[in-house]
């Protein structure tokens, strides 16, 4: 590989390429100065647990956005998956079966989105908006709008830990690895980047566009299903109206993490960093005791600044076209 000419350029290149992690670092340092309780193992463990569900959803959105698509049905599908999983657990008492059913529910529902987008050429925005309404209606229908309680050992997914690490966090890192592996070491990953970057060029290079889009929805479905199970388990209840607005939160995390809404750009690690940024912000503002109205304003401003900084850094890297 050819190397960049001088060391300064090289340092700058690396800094710019990793600007999102720098932002994360700055937030981390400022937070630890603001409150002495921030930099404790227990608190950081809390932050990890708090971001795990949203970050898992964001990994799914990351794959979709890179490929030039979107999923607005996340919140509703995630509720269906969680409720069905709890129902199966209550009937069978099997955690494994409950987990499988939860994940499969997400997959089955996303197959609908995948079919609409890949084979009926419905715009992803519309297809998943339709699925959002269908899924929410379905989950309210099967629960009659009532919460499910007394879910017993089901809480182990969301509240248990493996060693010292909370189970949802373990799942989050597993999904990070899955997403990273797909994007970097599989044909599917290359197809995802190529389709989002330039669908026609991808097609002309022999990439099967429709099939790829379909598969990405299926994978997203598995992530959403898993997240639903973890969420319901964490809150120790089956909440049919859970997850409203989660699609936007997951999108926010992915975008802060450097995923480009115009497609073709994004990484698994970036999305994790995005999850951390959102999680750390919420955490430090609660620790310090910022008023909840002010919190919303600060969060919005910091998100906008982070994205502006990231974009500016990336644009500066671009060379002139001749």
């Amino acid at each position: 590989m050819k190397t960049l000419t001088n060391r300064f350029e090289r340092v700058k290149y690396i800094a710019v390429k990793n600007s999102i992690y720098l932002i994360l670092g700055v937030i981390f340092i400022i937070s630890s100065l603001l409150n002495e309780n921030f930099l404790t193992v227990l608190n950081l463990r809390n932050v990890l647990r708090q971001i795990s569900v949203i970050t898992i959803l964001a990994f799914g959105e990351t794959l979709l956005i890179i490929a030039g698509m979107i999923d607005l049905s996340v919140g509703a599908v995630f509720a269906v998956a969680g409720i069905l999983s709890i129902t199966v657990f209550k009937i069978t008492g099997s955690l494994l079966l409950a987990l499988i059913v939860g994940i499969l529910s997400g997959v089955v529902l996303n197959i609908i989105s995948g079919m609409l987008v890949s084979y009926f050429k419905t715009p992803p925005f519309i297809a998943t908006l339709a699925l959002m309404t269908i899924a929410r209606g379905f989950v309210l229908l099967i629960t009659k709008g009532q919460n499910i309680y007394q879910i017993g050992r089901f809480v182990e997914f969301g509240q248990g830990s493996i060693g010292f690490i909370p189970t949802p966090v373990v799942f989050m890192f597993l999904m990070l690895i899955v997403t990273w592996y797909i994007l970097n070491h599989t044909r599917l990953g290359r197809a995802i980047y190529a389709i989002g970057g330039n669908e026609e060029a991808a097609m002309a290079s022999g990439i099967q566009v429709a099939k790829t889009k379909f598969i990405v929805y299926v994978i997203n479905g598995a992530f959403v299903g898993l997240a639903g199970v973890l969420f319901m388990s964490r809150v120790n209840a089956g909440l049919p109206n859970a997850g409203i607005g989660f699609e936007l939160e997951a999108l926010t995390v992915a975008i802060i993490g450097g995923t480009s809404f115009s497609g073709g750009i994004g990484t698994a690690a970036g999305t994790l960093a995005g999850g951390f940024i959102v999680g750390l912000l919420n955490n430090i503002m609660n620790l310090v005791g910022v008023n909840s109205y002010v919190q919303q304003i600060i969060k919005g401003v910091i998100i906008a600044l982070a994205v502006i900084f990231d974009m500016a850094a990336k644009n500066r890297r671009a060379r002139p076209e001749e």
Binding site: N37, L42, R234, V235, A237, N282, L287, V288, G289, S292
Partner: peptide, 24 residues
């Protein structure tokens, strides 16, 4: 009052706030 937040009637949001308050 050492902490006051809007959790939108939601259990999960209340959990996150409480976790942070317990730390603080």
């Amino acid at each position: 009052i050492v902490g006051e937040q809007i959790a939108h009637w939601n259990k999960d949001e209340a959990m996150s706030f409480m976790e942070d308050w317990v730390q603080a």
